[in-house]
Design a protein around this nucleic acid. Sequence first.
DNA 1: GGTCATAACGGGAGCGCTCCCACTCCGGGC
DNA 2: GCCCGGAGTGGGAGCGCTCCCGTTATGACC
Lengths: 342, 342
Amino acid sequence: MTGIKDVAREVEMSTATVSRALRNLPGVSEETRARVRETARRLGYVPSPSAAGLATGQTRTVAVVVPFVTQWFFAAVVQGAEEVLRERGYDLLLYNLAGDASARHRVFETNLLTKRVDAVLVLSLKPSSDELDRLVHLDRPVTIVGADLPGWATVRIDDELAARTAMRHLLDLGHRRIGYVGGTTEGVLDFTAPTARLAGYRDSLTAAGVEREPALEVDGDFTMTGGMRAARELLDRPDPPTAVFAASDEMAIGVLRIARELGLRVPEDLSVIGIDDHELADFFDLTTVAQPVHEQGRVAAQQVLAAMRNDEWKPEQVVLPTELVVRRTTAAPASGGGTPGR
Amino acid sequence: MTGIKDVAREVEMSTATVSRALRNLPGVSEETRARVRETARRLGYVPSPSAAGLATGQTRTVAVVVPFVTQWFFAAVVQGAEEVLRERGYDLLLYNLAGDASARHRVFETNLLTKRVDAVLVLSLKPSSDELDRLVHLDRPVTIVGADLPGWATVRIDDELAARTAMRHLLDLGHRRIGYVGGTTEGVLDFTAPTARLAGYRDSLTAAGVEREPALEVDGDFTMTGGMRAARELLDRPDPPTAVFAASDEMAIGVLRIARELGLRVPEDLSVIGIDDHELADFFDLTTVAQPVHEQGRVAAQQVLAAMRNDEWKPEQVVLPTELVVRRTTAAPASGGGTPGR
DNA sequence: GGTCATAACGGGAGCGCTCCCACTCCGGGC
DNA sequence: GCCCGGAGTGGGAGCGCTCCCGTTATGACC
């Protein structure tokens, strides 16, 4: 394996100069730099990240901790982050928790991350206070995507606002009986989005002078099949809602499916709206509140890169905009907001 | 930052013993080992991968090169691989090509991978001969997932067989006019699956004594929207097929959508079958030929791990089984195999 | 008691870089 | 002619581990 010494010998220079030349540091004549580069290429020299890391204390690697890579949302964020990291020559170490508590434990508790990465991106998880402790001790830039955590660098959307946007759309259309399909905050993964979106739902009702009906709030588990379950629960009632607001597009799609099975026409008999602008939303003509997914990954990556460049960097809280995308699953209720004829 | 020396000083032993104790190497009394472990834990000692890597030449990291993380199939494979790698204490470096030729070039040509990872997993790409050269020079275990490449370690399904399984199902039901929705092999990413599946389609027709009709083979780009385009082309014909075999579930779902738009009943007027058993297949009641996605990632990871453990390991070609999953999008043609009444 | 495995541990030379601190050389200003 | 500053370069310590050889203690065995 050719090392820096081989290159140095070949160009009859010191390893110090070769190192400087290859890393574009000043203090090397252009002519020498060119010769070094050419020789390195010819010899197929590749610097050892381990050695460089040992010497500098930097690994040019950032860790991304994700709950489930298989979910479109997370994969898209990862993709965004990877793009900008690669541009800057950083590698991306993927830690997929996959709903496994022990995996989560391992990644956070044993500070495996230490000395291994220069920065950490945490997706949609609200770390426990223990975990936050570990992250603090890392003493490396950390950015949380998709969760609101005061004092930390975060990139997210305003979930409550997104929920209110969706609700306003339904309310403006004249709906008053509006079902909510959300998810619990419990379990291995503590997202903050569910809570905020639920709050947005409730506030909107209150603001519109509609009395809240607990039975219209059901758990959809943030999955399609969960959305189906929730939809059955909502629509099998004697007094079903005229519209359903699902806290995610995937659940909304589940609702659509059940509506169709029950013979309900969408949007005539039932309006459905989601949040995300999932890649399938267009396919299903789903009205939704779009959030910039890919972009959140990019911004988060840029954030940690910036933090690594200057030490005075202070945690920023970036809130990206959302936008109502009206497609064809929402319309005014048939009977002016009352129970639709079935 | 506490290093191995600090631990050594604390337990009044040499760094050598601490190193051995912590890595469960023989030659350390159980009592010492326990003391070392306890002390290391107490001091919050975490070994530096850079230093260890420099000394051993191993990084305990494997690279995974993937065309698009955002596609369910790839994400699922990555998830499978990550699982077994994490179990063994290996980290996973993700290289997402995202259809970007320059990214691909960078990953392969500049052998960035060298000295950075102990092994490489390549997903669904058929590396060019140049790229294979680089991989050979890596001199590290490489496994290709989802492509057939003689002489290389591969994990895949028998794509041609899968296609024949799908076709047999349709033929057995009595279909004779069967459309094919596939994809081209061109472009940045050269998968081998499209070619093999097309071959399976053609062979099946020939074997069944049905004459091939080029107009029934259309390009669906392996995406839902591509599947929609393809479906329009196929079903708008004066003599539409009674069944469509899509080379992927996503395209099949696109076909379903268009069929519904055109007022065709599935499966009465049109049978549709796919390949993959995508997470959405169940949702759409799609008949398909299932392939073990997650498992392919696991097996591939196990393969490189095995290869790293013993040097005599020879490239293995693992072919995982597929299975017909009959749901509700396939049935006998209405008019015994002829053109359905429309 | 002497010999000799064997178990347990220590010393210290690397691993391949980076980076601090020289050192040399050369041209301009006085 | 001398001094000085800056550009270009070299020497070599050190980053934090691993691992090859020692060395020492401990018993078993004759």
